[in-house]
Amino acid sequence: MDYSTPAGTVRGLQEVTLTVPRSGITVFAGPSGSGKSTLLRVLGLFERPARGTLRFGGTDTGVLSHAARRALRRRHLGLVFQNPPENLLDFLSVADNLRAAAQSARRPCDPEAILARLGLDGTGDWRVSALSGGQQQRLAFGCALARGSSVILADEPTSQLDEASADLVIRTLRSLAEEEFAVLVASHDDRVIELGSRVARLRDGRLEGIERR
């Protein structure tokens, strides 16, 4: 990825080659500015790489139209941002957020079943603002489930949370991995990194190495 700045073009990512497995937690770890979030957005099909190839299930996403990329993202990918309110529609109830997510992928939805799965039983009629930060993040993961996402990407999902709320999100990540989703997480939180079945270390936009656990 290249970015234009007043000082010239900056290369955000370079020489990154990796294969993401169909299940388990892959953590992208590294200091701020190492390229973690940029890589996550490229893998989530929100940005196109300036060079190189990105394949999803054997499909070269670089040759797809904007509409085809959006359809692929809608059917298979769910992205959870680090700031909980950015993931949700605050004018809808908790259950209606799940219904809206499912509708965007033209899927049926059972909000109560998803909420029970996330430990949010009984909150369906609540406004989003009535949820804690950790509960909002869990609901964001629930929206990815409602869309039928097979790959869930999370950008620093615990960075805006207190320790207790972060623990709830970490528990959710572990649960999703046990259900054999592919979970990709950008994080510098040691507790999240410890969850990773694979940890890709980034620095200055380069992949330094991959630890398999």
Rank of each mutant, 00 (worst) to 15 (best):
R198M: 10
W126C: 15
E86Y: 10
P108R: 03
R74N: 13
S175R: 13
A100R: 08
A95P: 09
F56Q: 11
V42C: 11
F46H: 15
A177R: 02
L92Y: 13
V128D: 01
D96W: 03
L79F: 10
P108I: 03
A100F: 14
D167N: 14
M1H: 13
G33R: 15
A200W: 04
L139M: 07
L202K: 02
S149R: 02
L45F: 09
R99H: 10
L79W: 01
R147F: 08
R174P: 11
L77I: 15
L168H: 15
I152E: 05
H188A: 09
A177L: 08
V185G: 04
G58P: 00
Q14I: 12
T172K: 05
S65R: 12
E179H: 10
L131N: 07
L88D: 00
G62S: 10
R48H: 09
G119E: 06
N83S: 15
V16K: 09
I114F: 14
V16Q: 10
R55E: 11
R106C: 03
I114Q: 06
S34D: 00
S197W: 04
Q82W: 11
L115Y: 07
D110N: 10
L153E: 11
A166D: 07
L43G: 00
A101Q: 06
L54Y: 06
L40T: 06
L89W: 13
A154F: 06
R55A: 12
R107S: 13
L202G: 03
T61A: 09
F81H: 12
P85V: 05
R171N: 15
S65G: 08
L118W: 07
V27Q: 01
V199R: 04
A200D: 06
F56D: 05
S187E: 04
T123N: 08
E178K: 14
E112Y: 04
I193C: 01
G52P: 05
L98G: 05
R138Q: 08
L161G: 08
Q103N: 15
L207R: 05
C143Y: 00
